[in-house]
Simulated assay, not measured.
Amino acid sequence: MNNDRLNADDPGQDTSTVAEPPRRGIKSYVLRAGRMTAAQQRGLDEVWPQLGLKLEDGLLDLDAVFGRRAPRVVEIGFGMGASLIEQAETHPDTDFIGIEVHAPGVGKLLDEVDKRGLTNLRVYRDDALEVLTRCLPEASLDGLQLFFPDPWPKKKHHKRRIVQPAFVELVRTRLKPGGTLHMATDWEAYAEHMAEVMAEAPGFRNTSSEGPYVPRPEFRPLTKFEHRGARLGHGVWDLIYRRSE
């Protein structure tokens, strides 16, 4: 999460409109079948009714969802949830919403959130573009995180990458002025693609003073995957852009 987020007490949020969604025909993910552990199943069966959010809930009143007014951060594609849980635990004054389509990861995160007694995290098990379009009010977020999305490395699959101009514009409308879009990837070619898309995106400015990338911020937890990659000499690229208008 970003340390210099806007004050969430700004009363000027406009929650009356919903932007047109990017056209969906090609999804940026593939649903995979996977075995569920007992803990993951418990998360879905017992914790989801308290912390799960659904598309049919429609446009959210985030203050009502969390029972307070606070900075709000969304993470798309949290995997098994370790990074998101660490952030929620480390930053209890910030509210987090995770979006993930894969059931084992959602179940794992919910089970862990319940065991740790965290109250500042909610979860969608739905398509992120649908959630952004239908459920999150305009100018309601202090930050949106997209960490290690599927790079779809083959050229014929590049159209599946979630970072596209329409996605970036949708994110912009959901961020408060001054809110941040933080992306990270371990595929240099995808990092270059992200930088190219953002260079053309209106209403954003790069927070980096030198080139498109920033050093890994301390608030982004290191994953086991990153630790292993670092030992093998693999790079990771962080990009943070701020909504300027």
Results as ranks from 00 to 15, higher is better:
82 A>P: 06
84 L>F: 11
55 L>N: 02
86 E>M: 02
120 N>W: 06
202 P>D: 07
87 Q>G: 03
190 Y>C: 00
218 E>W: 02
110 L>I: 08
133 T>L: 00
200 E>G: 11
202 P>M: 00
62 L>D: 04
218 E>P: 11
41 Q>N: 09
12 G>N: 14
192 E>F: 04
16 S>D: 01
193 H>L: 08
98 G>H: 03
23 R>Q: 13
221 P>E: 13
2 N>T: 07
238 D>K: 15
66 F>A: 13
236 V>E: 02
77 G>A: 04
24 R>T: 09
125 R>Q: 15
217 P>K: 06
56 E>G: 00
17 T>H: 12
115 K>F: 09
153 P>C: 03
14 D>I: 12
114 D>V: 05
200 E>D: 08
168 V>T: 15
113 V>D: 13
148 F>P: 07
12 G>F: 14
53 L>N: 07
83 S>M: 11
105 G>P: 07
193 H>F: 03
19 A>N: 01
46 E>M: 00
154 K>R: 15
158 H>E: 07
47 V>L: 07
157 H>P: 08
139 A>F: 10
190 Y>A: 00
28 S>G: 15
83 S>T: 13
166 A>R: 15
131 V>L: 01
41 Q>S: 08
177 P>V: 09
40 Q>Y: 05
241 Y>F: 13
169 E>V: 05
222 L>S: 15
147 F>L: 15
235 G>K: 10
146 L>C: 13
189 A>F: 00
122 R>A: 12
196 E>F: 13
178 G>C: 00
138 E>K: 14
195 A>N: 06
198 M>L: 14
17 T>G: 13
99 I>E: 04
235 G>F: 12
97 I>W: 09
89 E>I: 12
44 L>H: 14
64 A>I: 09
76 I>N: 03
206 N>M: 10
98 G>P: 07
16 S>Q: 03
123 V>N: 04
121 L>I: 15
168 V>Q: 10
160 R>C: 12
184 A>P: 01
18 V>F: 04
